[in-house]
Structure formats: structure tokens, C-alpha cells
Amino acid sequence: VYCDSSSYGGGIGVAAVLYLDSMEESSLTYHLGSDAEHTVYKGEVVGFTLGLHLLASVVGWIRRGAIMGSNSQAVIMALDNQHPHPAHYLLDHVHTAAENLHRKVNQLSHTPERHAALCAGKKWTACTRGATDLQVHWTPGHIGFGLNVRVDELAKDAAQGTFSDPKTLPVYLQSKPLPASILATRQCMLTDIEGLWQRRWKKSLRFPKINRINDTLPSKGYMHLV
């Protein structure tokens, strides 16, 4: 499975593509919303949940193992980071989806034992870890790697509003939009404030004279200087 997120045309889109024996089997896409409210990082995390959702639909094929590819090193490292950080609630969805996948594989691999235990009136609990060899690999993006190019194209389409039927998506994505990202909202506000600052500065009586000395004002370099 290859996952990717893209900021394109003012929107944030995410996609995941499932391959079986190097052949595309299925895909899922999701439109997060405006890039003023969401981030690509957030989309990359959602991409992992889409990928795991696709793997759960072909449990019989992945008893020996499966590989998930992503070009986001930040998200891959965040999977092992249990400290609070941006989009942590989405990482919880990733871990839950991974546990459910292991549980399904374990149930399928031990069907006779499970059936015998249930017939005997005993409780049988499936493993949520180690049932299959689930690996996460970093894949370099934008270098012409065919499998990654395909998911990037779908992510761009999703950024423009094209996405899969909600009924085919993970449950948490079916009912309502995801909450706005604090980081994206803050950056949008800073951009608006900077634009307002520039417009007011150009209307200032001091602008013509100072502009002849330094035409980069107002700039970040000037703010650091003063």
C-alpha cells in the first residue's frame, strides 16, 4: 500500500493505493478541506488509516506480511512518538486500525482453534500484535517512482474535491469533517496579518522615502533587526 497527501488548488487531499503482486487492486481518496484549515502532515496521517483500511479488505492475502509506503518521514517517526503533538488523535486511529488488522489476520489464521474454543464455551481472544509482518517503509517522492506517482495523482485529485464514496472510508471519516488544524489556522491568520501590514505600510506617508533606501520593507529581516 502506498499513501500520500497533497496540497493543491487551495485544498488538502489524501490517497492510498493497494497493490497485489505489483498490480493495482483498489484505492481510496479523501478531501480534508481547505489548506487554510488543514495541513499536508495531517493528510499523511489520514493516508495511513486509508491504507490500513484497504489492507483489512484483503486479509487473506497478507497473512505473511504487508508493506506500507509513505514519503513522509515526519509521520513515520511520529508513529513511535507517544507524547502529545499535532494530529495525535489521528495517530490513535492509525494504531487502532493496525491492531484491528492484526486481530483479523490472527482470527483467520487460527479459525479451527477459535471455532473449537467457542464450541467449548471458552473465550478466545485474538492477538492485536505480531499476527502478520506489517512494515512501514519510506519511499522518496517526486522522482518518477511509478507506484508513488499514481498515489500522488490521486491525492491531487482529492485535493480538488474528488474523493471516494464515504461508505467505503474508515468509520471516523464517514460522518463529519475533521476538526481544523491549529497550526494551519494560525499560519492563515499570520498570513492575513502580514498582508494587512503591507497594505497599511504602503499607505503610510513615510513609505516613499524609506522605500528609496530599502524597498524590502516590511520584511522579516527588518523585524529581526529592530
Rank of each mutant, 00 (worst) to 15 (best):
R186F: 12
W201C: 05
L91S: 06
F207S: 08
A117R: 02
K176T: 14
A98T: 06
L173S: 05
A158N: 13
R200N: 08
V14R: 02
C119I: 08
C188T: 15
P208Y: 13
D80P: 03
A116P: 04
R206S: 09
W61P: 00
G161A: 12
M189F: 14
T128M: 07
Q198K: 09
E99H: 10
S6F: 00
Y2M: 06
W197F: 04
P84E: 10
N214F: 01
D215Q: 08
T162C: 14
A180F: 09
L118C: 01
G60Q: 10
L190H: 15
S72Y: 02
L54S: 01
T139Q: 13
P208V: 10
F163L: 10
G195W: 05
P140D: 06
G69R: 02
H115C: 05
S175P: 00
L54Y: 00
H224L: 15
A155W: 00
T139K: 08
E113I: 06
M23I: 09
L18W: 04
P140R: 12
D152I: 04
S22E: 11
T128V: 11
T168I: 04
A126E: 11
Y222T: 13
A180Y: 09
S175V: 11
Q187L: 15
I76G: 01
A155D: 07
H53A: 09
L54R: 00
H53W: 04
W61Y: 12
V105P: 03
